[in-house]
Simulated assay, not measured.
Amino acid sequence: MEKKELRHHVLQKRNALSQEQRERFSRQACHELLQCDRLSQAKVVMAFHPFGEELDILPFLEEARERGVEIWLPLTVPSQRRLVPYRYDGPQMLKQGVYGIWEPNPDLAEEGDCSRLDAILVPGVAFDRRGGRMGYGGGYYDRFLAALQHRPFLVGICFSIQVVDQVPMEPHDIRLDALVTEKGFYHS
């Protein structure tokens, strides 16, 4: 019940942000992402397309692509409860997925080779500064991250109001290396 209550509480706070706050905080967080040395050295970064009231990282994705970084976005495969990364070449190759999230259209996109991943930007509901992350409850990212043969640099992305003292962690949960909010970049 602890996770369910925390998820509800944090989403309620996030949804209460005004559109102006969400846009301003998203710009500030994208600036922080662009200043990160580990991300600026990365050649291949898996990210996510923001959904609903999530922090908007699209400006970071476009700037990173202009700088020559290969960006990948995940396709959700609910029947297998897994994520499959595809190269992102712009909004023209996206389709609305099963959860309403914009995802790569496999007919228009090239599947990514996970051994090439340098970094992954990870969405979620709540985070702590020790690398804890609580997602939306489907376990997609934890399964994806656990299956990787090597560990890329893992960065949580959220508004500062989504940072809590401690996220309840289970043995299968993967800790992140860093966290970015509109207030800065924090290493775990």
Rank of each mutant, 00 (worst) to 15 (best):
L154G: 08
G156L: 08
P168I: 10
R143A: 12
Q166G: 03
A146H: 08
F127P: 06
P152A: 07
D142N: 09
G137F: 13
G135I: 14
H150A: 15
R130S: 15
I161T: 04
M169A: 12
G139V: 10
V167K: 04
D128K: 09
Y141P: 06
G124A: 12
G135L: 13
M169H: 03
A147E: 14
D128I: 06
Y141E: 09
F144W: 03
C158V: 05
G138M: 05
Y136D: 11
C158M: 01
E170G: 11
V155T: 05
V167R: 05
F144C: 08
R151Q: 13
M134S: 02
I161V: 12
M134G: 01
R130G: 14
L154I: 10
G137A: 13
Q149G: 15
V155M: 07
A147M: 04
L154E: 09
L145G: 11
F159Q: 10
R129T: 12
G124N: 08
L148G: 14
C158G: 15
V163I: 11
H150R: 15
I161G: 02
Q162I: 01
E170W: 02
A146E: 10
H150N: 13
V163M: 11
Q162H: 04
Y140I: 05
R130M: 08
M169E: 14
G138W: 07
E170M: 06
V164W: 11
G131P: 07
S160V: 00
R129G: 01
V164E: 08
R133A: 05
L145E: 06
G131I: 06
Y141S: 04
G132H: 12
G124K: 06
G131E: 09
V164D: 07
G156P: 01
G156V: 00
F127G: 01
I157R: 03
Q166W: 01
A126H: 10
S160H: 13
P123K: 06
Y136I: 05
R143W: 01
V155H: 03
D165T: 10
E170F: 04
L154Q: 03
A126I: 01
